[in-house]
Every structure is written in C-alpha cells, then in structure tokens.
Amino acid sequence: MFKFTIKKGVIMHFNEVFNIVKARRESLNVTQETLAQLSGVALRTLKQFESGKGNPTLQTLQKIGDALGLEVTVVVKNRELTHESSKDSF
C-alpha cells in the first residue's frame, strides 16, 4: 500500500501529492476518465488536480486515494505553550 501524509507544520508541497497520484494512476493503467468514475470526483477537478492547478479538499484527496489504493493520513499536533512563551506572545 502506498501512503502519503499531510502534517500540520510539515509542508508536503501539493506538487508532490499530484505527482504521487498521477504516478500511481499511470502505474495501474487507469485513465483519468476511469479514475473520475471510480472515485466520484469530477473529471475536470481531477484534470486540474493532476496539472497542479487545483486545490483539492481533504475529502477529494480521500476519494482519489481510496480509488487508487492510497492511504491519506492527516496528522495535527497540538503544541502546548509554556507559561514563559505564552506571556511573551502577548
């Protein structure tokens, strides 16, 4: 299984995500039209996404990932502020 992770504070440039999705689609010999049907994502949206012009929602990424056998993971970490750092920020 392929996996890509989006973490708060760690920027995975969307071009990397686009490239992963496109490479996976092509390795499976799946056309954009077929992926659109399998994922429930509009063909226009998929084409924009793969060309790097789109700004997909997490839900769209999940649909595409599910159709291609990719795992989409979002990790949000909460950093607790110390008393010292919180008083300095005001």
Rank of each mutant, 00 (worst) to 15 (best):
Q62N: 14
L70P: 00
N78D: 12
V17S: 00
N29G: 01
S39E: 04
S39W: 01
K3V: 12
T34Y: 02
S89V: 11
K53F: 07
D88A: 12
L70S: 04
S27M: 11
K3Y: 07
N29T: 06
V74N: 04
I64W: 01
A23G: 08
L70C: 12
I20F: 06
A42P: 03
K3R: 14
N78W: 05
V21H: 01
E71L: 10
H13M: 09
V75K: 11
G69H: 07
R24E: 12
V74E: 03
A67E: 02
L35F: 06
K3L: 10
A23D: 11
F90P: 03
R44F: 07
A23L: 09
V17M: 03
L46N: 01
T57P: 02
E33Q: 13
K22H: 06
K3E: 13
E84W: 08
I6T: 09
L58S: 10
S51Q: 15
Q48V: 06
T57C: 05
S27P: 01
N15E: 12
G65H: 02
R24Y: 02
G9E: 07
L35I: 05
T57M: 05
I6R: 10
N55P: 03
F90G: 13
K63S: 11
S27Q: 14
A36E: 01
E84I: 09
I11M: 07
